[in-house]
Simulated assay, not measured.
Amino acid sequence: MSVSRILRNIAAPKKALTTAAVAAATAGLALTAAPAHAATASADSASQAKAIARKMIPDAAQYNAFSEIVQHESGWNVHATNSSSGAYGLVQALPGSKMASAGSDWKTNPATQIKWGLNYMDARYGSPVGAWNFWQANGWY
């Protein structure tokens, strides 16, 4: 049985890792962890984007609504891309290039994406709270 199959078949993470480590050792393999900076970089990027949004959206209710949408749409990943639609960024603009109206750095700058997202939510739903209410009723905005 392969290590990957063992990992898929066992639900408990600790048990899976123990079983995989034993199986790997028996097969003469060594298990190595993924680089820690990969997960940390993503968490750092999300934290930075959230901090920027907090500064741009001082009202707590509006920030919370915006945050809920972004969490559901992209997980606060500035580079999130929907493989089926091509929607891009924190707020999943479709097409992503629409965000160029907020800045030429729309592909990489969370502030630019947040600015565009806020303008979109205000224009279409009146506010992030209005957008979140729509999202909750429809599963999209």
Results as ranks from 00 to 15, higher is better:
D59K: 05
V70M: 05
A65L: 00
Q48D: 06
A34N: 11
A93W: 05
S45Y: 08
A65H: 05
K107Y: 00
I57W: 00
L94R: 14
Q92R: 12
S97G: 12
P58S: 11
K115M: 01
L118R: 12
V91G: 11
M99D: 04
T40G: 05
Y120H: 15
P110Q: 07
T112H: 11
I52E: 01
P110S: 07
P58N: 06
N109R: 05
P95A: 08
Y120K: 14
N82W: 14
K115F: 00
A36T: 11
A43Q: 13
N64R: 03
T112M: 08
D122W: 01
G103L: 12
I52Q: 01
H37M: 09
E73W: 11
K98D: 09
E68S: 15
H37S: 15
D105I: 03
P110L: 02
A41F: 11
K50N: 04
A65T: 08
R54F: 00
A87S: 11
D44F: 14
D59S: 12
I69A: 04
L90E: 06
A49H: 05
F66E: 07
A87D: 11
S104G: 15
T40K: 14
I52S: 00
G103E: 07
T40R: 15
A100T: 06
E68N: 13
N119Y: 01
D44V: 13
A46N: 08
A100Q: 15
H72T: 05
D105S: 12
N77P: 06
A49L: 02
N77L: 09
V78A: 07
S74T: 04
A51E: 07
V78H: 07
L94Y: 14
L118Q: 09
T40M: 11
I52W: 00
R54K: 15
F66S: 07
A49Y: 04
S83F: 02
A93M: 06
I57H: 01
F66M: 10
A43L: 13
K107A: 06
Q113E: 04
A43Y: 05
S67F: 01
S47K: 14
K115E: 02
L118S: 10
S83C: 04
V70P: 11
G89S: 08
Q71N: 10
A61V: 09
T81Y: 12
G86T: 04
N64A: 10
K98L: 11
M121P: 06
A60P: 14
H37D: 12
N109T: 04
K50T: 03
G86Q: 10
A102V: 09
S85G: 04
A53E: 02
A87K: 13
G117F: 05
Y63T: 04
G96A: 07
E68H: 14
Y63D: 00
K50H: 10
E68A: 14
A111T: 01
S67D: 15
